[in-house]
Design a protein around this nucleic acid. Sequence first.
DNA 1: CGCGTCTTTGAGTCGCTTCAATGTCTGTGG
DNA 2: CCACAGACATTGAAGCGACTCAAAGACGCG
Lengths: 245, 245
Amino acid sequence: MQPPFHRLEEFVPLAAAELALVTGWAAAARWVERGHSIRREGDPVNGVFFLMEGWVSSSMMLRDGRRQIVKVHLAGDMLGFPSLSLAQAGESLDAITDARVCTVSNRVLGRLVTDAPRLAIGLMLSTQKERVNLMRQLSWVGATSSTERLAAFLLDLHDRLSAAGMALDGGFDFPLTQQQVGELLGLTPVHINRTFRTLDGTGYIRRSKGRITIADFRGLRGLSANGTAPFAGQAAWTRLGEPAR
Amino acid sequence: MQPPFHRLEEFVPLAAAELALVTGWAAAARWVERGHSIRREGDPVNGVFFLMEGWVSSSMMLRDGRRQIVKVHLAGDMLGFPSLSLAQAGESLDAITDARVCTVSNRVLGRLVTDAPRLAIGLMLSTQKERVNLMRQLSWVGATSSTERLAAFLLDLHDRLSAAGMALDGGFDFPLTQQQVGELLGLTPVHINRTFRTLDGTGYIRRSKGRITIADFRGLRGLSANGTAPFAGQAAWTRLGEPAR
DNA sequence: CGCGTCTTTGAGTCGCTTCAATGTCTGTGG
DNA sequence: CCACAGACATTGAAGCGACTCAAAGACGCG
């Protein structure tokens, strides 16, 4: 199976040398078992990570022990970028399923601007995309009901899995526990359960163990409070004047 | 009054040529009146903005008309970066007070990597910082009570104003309406009001029109659910190997 | 003075939480 | 191959925090 570079090339196509570079990262991947941490809040920031395979959550802990999952990462995502601005890591990265990740050290990152300028710009745009996604999630959590929230999340997840070739006919693997979904959407696991039951009771989705199928896209989209974000793809790069040769 | 470049230099000190560049931006500033938009959701993405003076909100609209304010920007902030990844702007930028902003065009941005590499890296780190802040806000909104949320927001705001020299002895101007605070924290204006009254009834803060004073930092911090994020400052740059000459 | 915007207050309701118990599945060891 | 433990899902009942609806102050401005 080829490494999931689709996210890296979403905004800027990679030059041959750059492709070689990231292929080099991929060679040094390591396995992390389900439930184990890739990096914990407070750990030193030695670099960022590239997720080759599996699902990983990025979360922050509150003082009272409550946890907010900030994002569920899929294969192809870069992890840990935000902590570059911090003295110690501000987010925990935990493997939801068994996961394969490789580390991109600070040193390599620092050289990226000169060694792989197109990749650097691509990562910058990718980071902005993550910010948009965070803003969208914030708006779900801040301003919508549990049904709207869950609907929006499932649709978003489907789109992302779909882009990675991991969804077929609206169906996809779903390894998250209801507890985790709750921590992501700011709801209790109990209420997540009732909301799930509402959605599949109404026929919007179907569930079997470890798997979800979206049965009625139109209906779900009707529930969800905001549409799909119009990411610009390569146009974002062109717009900047394709500065990196 | 000198332009608020403190945010631009938080992570990487600017070279003389770079300082000249941003001073050039500042020369072309324009005024935006309180209540008016700098850019609306759906507008074309012609560049980003630098906020010279005043308060600006960045918000997303949901289909049902509800609005989520994603961030309150202060003088020195860069605005509109996330929309670089989008085909049309995904966020509205609205002047909360009269504001002075200048535009940084796509073309200028595109050249930044080669023309002002240190600034480019500084902006990249700054963007990561914004991501951390967004994550923190998400965790407030997703997992804390109204009191904790408001306390955390006021403390955070104070710290930011303080860094810009706009707070004295815990006191600062506060031009937001309770409606806007509600849209920011995911609560109704009515409930924001009651929460405010609780906070100043208990003596944590004092309010007079358009102004807030934090009277009991220790107490407020006790309410707030997470501490201050440990931003790395110049160390973040050093860690990357100071790659940009 | 009068109008619009914002703040404050009260009363009633609802969505989500809490607490608690039961059901179901999976893996594991005897 | 069955018994059992642990993790997860499901369900019910009761409570509470935040919302809704509504009305009345307070302030600023023309």
